[in-house]
């Protein structure tokens, strides 16, 4: 995993090192979601460049982008974004299906045990608490062992105690070498990170290194 350099929005220049834990803060409409989508390869920049592990992402076609999302990035959303009809295991299997793994179940179960959900394998999202749902989402994000985890307000829908548990899991992943980028409103969450980037009107206004 090499350096990650992003040149986005209004001439913003950002570089995230491998293994870092970075928080991005900013008010609504500041452009932090766009930044997030660009980092997550859900969107491509209209100008400038984005280099991920030494590869120009802005020049990739959609098929290659899908592969990057599948292999290199794990998403954790505020609203969990689990498939409601599928069990916890099947939700975690999802990235494996698109990477062509033949026996996805064993890997999915392993990831769920890692986030402490070994006893909830066959439960559907509506049978799980908010914290458990977010654990399923984290298991789904890490099942293919991507080098980057992107959290979009990962604790935004959780009470503070559960939020702290989720943050502990994410920090643990970061400690094991995964690059962690989190978008948040919450100062307390941002305080966990090594570096806080504040963005306003598409411009990075402060860096706390």
């Amino acid at each position: 995993m090499g350096a990650t350099e992003v040149d986005v929005l209004k001439g913003v220049d950002l570089k995230i090192e491998s293994g870092e834990f970075v928080s991005i803060m900013g008010p609504s409409g500041s452009g932090k979601s766009t930044l997030m989508n660009l980092i997550g390869c859900l969107d491509r920049p209209t100008g400038g460049s984005y280099v991920l592990s030494g590869t120009r992402v802005d020049e990739m076609d959609e098929e290659a982008l899908a592969k990057v999302r599948n292999r290199n990035i794990g998403f954790v959303f505020q609203t969990f974004n689990l498939l409601p009809r599928e069990s916890a295991t099947e939700n975690v299997e999802l990235p494996l299906l698109y990477s062509g793994v033949r026996e996805p179940r064993a890997l999915a179960v392993e990831a769920l045990k890692e986030v402490g959900l070994g006893h909830r394998l066959d439960h559907r999202p509506n049978e799980l608490s908010g914290g458990e749902r977010q654990r399923v989402a984290i298991a789904r994000a890490i099942v293919l062992r991507p080098p980057i985890i992107l959290g979009d307000e990962p604790t935004g829908n959780l009470d503070s105690r559960t939020g702290a548990e989720i943050m502990a899991i994410l920090k643990d992943l970061n400690a094991k070498g995964t690059t962690l980028v989190i978008v948040t409103h919450d100062q307390a969450i941002a305080a966990h990170s090594e570096r806080v980037i504040t963005i306003k009107d598409g411009v990075i206004t402060s860096r706390v290194d």
Partner: peptide, 14 residues
């Protein structure tokens, strides 16, 4: 629609 978005986010190609 949301399911499609989720699938695409985790790596589904068009």
């Amino acid at each position: 629609t949301r399911e499609i978005g989720i699938r695409m986010a985790v790596g589904a190609r068009r």
